[in-house]
Structure formats: structure tokens, C-alpha cells
């Protein structure tokens, strides 16, 4: 599903050049549930943004769904994001003046799905998230966990192949975090590839694979046993 070869990324701020990703090689198969860990500033979000076509890489090869991603027009990237990808963010990123249902339905608007139909679908997805009664509520009337579930419904509604979540539980308490993780696992079990950036060990351990980033490189990849044993395999890189 996703194949990265020697991906480099630098940010230029003024005269400084900050080399953030220093050669990432990674293969994520369809239907995997993967987490990315690492200390703050190690490049997790940068990597996820490149995977999500929100940013371009400078060097290396990125193959997404059998298609090589080179620098492409925003229009084309937008279309790919819309059809293939779903995003969940730490700060939810709901549109404040739209109610829950309208927020969930918005990706379908960009697919030119008729209003009635997309609102109905949005209601179905909210129902799956246990939020049917909150459909007419504005984001500021929802709790953090509810907002994140709305965001997940929004990421799901286009039936993407991949869901990218940047610290989806970062703003939630531990109980709600577990609920959100359970949702993401459920989504994964329906066959969708899920990639989660997280700080929290217990969250990472709920995934199949943990990719540890350090200073722009993959330090190690830990395969969690599917039967959830604590046994880990360290794969040294280079």
C-alpha cells in the first residue's frame, strides 16, 4: 500500500536549512495498523504529512497504492486525498460553523455527492460512532472525545484505503483515548490501513507495528505480537 525509499525532507527557514527526514525506508502493507513513535521534533508529523500528500518530499521514492507520487498539482493531490485518504488530527480540526453532520458530510461535497444523500450517509456514520443524537450540534457543544469521533466519522465517510491519525488521542483523557483507539482498531479490522502518530506507549502497543523515529531516521521497528504478547523484536537499522 505504502512504500518509501530513502525519503528526505528539509525545511528552509530564512537562511537555515533544517534536515528533518534523513532517508526513510518503509513498507506498510494494506490492512496494517501501524504506529509511529519518537521524541518531539523527531519528524513524526512531517513523515505523516508526506504520507498524506499534505507536503512534498525532497528526495526519494514514494509509492502510494501502486502509484509513484512525484511533485504533482494541488488539484491532483486534493483528489487523491479525497478518494484515498482520511485524516484524524490531535486538535480535531472540525469546521466551527458547521454542525457535526455537515462536518462529516463535507468530504462528500467535494466528491459532488448530492446534499440529501451525503447528509444521510453522514448520519449513518455518526450513528456508528454512537453520536446520532449529536448530529445537529455544533463542534463547540461537543466533548473532546465526541469531537474526535466526529472527525473519525468524517475521515471514514469517503471509504478511504488509508487513515492517517496524528496524535488522535493527544487531547483526550485515558478512558476516552481507549475508546477512540478501539474505534480505530475496528476500522482497521474492516480492512483499512491505519497509521497513527503517538507519544503514548500503551496506545502504540495496541497497534501491529511500532515505528520508532529518532532524529529523522527509523531507529527501530517493533512488531507487536498479534496475540498481544509483550515480546518485542528489535530490528536494528543499518
Amino acid at each position: 500500500m505504502i512504500r518509501l525509499q530513502n525519503i528526505h525532507k528539509s525545511y528552509i527557514t530564512g537562511t537555515n536549512k533544517l534536515h528533518v527526514l534523513k532517508g526513510i525506508d518503509l513498507h506498510i502493507k494494506e490492512g496494517e495498523l501501524v504506529s509511529i513513535m519518537g521524541s518531539s521534533g523527531s519528524g513524526k508529523s512531517t513523515l505523516l504529512n508526506i504520507l498524506g500528500l499534505l507536503d512534498n518530499h525532497d528526495e526519494g521514492v514514494y509509492i502510494l497504492n501502486n502509484q509513484e507520487i512525484k511533485s504533482m498539482s494541488e488539484t491532483k493531490a486534493a483528489k487523491l486525498r479525497n478518494n484515498l485518504l482520511g485524516f484524524v488530527f490531535q486538535s480535531f480540526n472540525l469546521i466551527s460553523f458547521k454542525n457535526a453532520m455537515e462536518n462529516v458530510a463535507l468530504p462528500l461535497y467535494y466528491q459532488k455527492v448530492a446534499r440529501k444523500k451525503r447528509n444521510k450517509m453522514a448520519l449513518d456514520y455518526l450513528d456508528k460512532m454512537g453520536l446520532k443524537d449529536w448530529a445537529e450540534h455544533m463542534p463547540n457543544e461537543l466533548s473532546g472525545g465526541q469531537k474526535q469521533r466526529v472527525a473519525i466519522a468524517r475521515s471514514m465517510i469517503t471509504q478511504p484505503k488509508i487513515i492517517l491519525a496524528d496524535e488522535p488521542t493527544g487531547a483526550l483523557d485515558s478512558k476516552t483515548s481507549i475508546e477512540v483507539m478501539d474505534l480505530l482498531k475496528e476500522i482497521n479490522q474492516s480492512g483499512i490501513t491505519v497509521i497513527i502518530v503517538t507519544h503514548e506507549n500503551d496506545i502504540a502497543h495496541m497497534t501491529d507495528r511500532i515505528i520508532n523515529l529518532k532524529d529523522g531516521r527509523i531507529e527501530s521497528i517493533i512488531e507487536n505480537n498479534k496475540i498481544n504478547s509483550k515480546e518485542t523484536i528489535r530490528v536494528p537499522q543499518e
Binding site: T75, A78, R81, N82, N93, P107, Y110, T158
Partner: peptide, 14 residues
């Protein structure tokens, strides 16, 4: 921010 969100979920520049 709103425009960024719209773009992330598939709004084209046009």
C-alpha cells in the same frame, strides 16, 4: 485553518 481543513479533506484549489 478552515481552508486548510477543506483542502486536507479534498477541496481543490479551484
Amino acid at each position: 485553518k478552515e481552508i486548510g481543513i477543506r483542502k486536507a479533506i479534498g477541496a481543490s484549489p479551484s
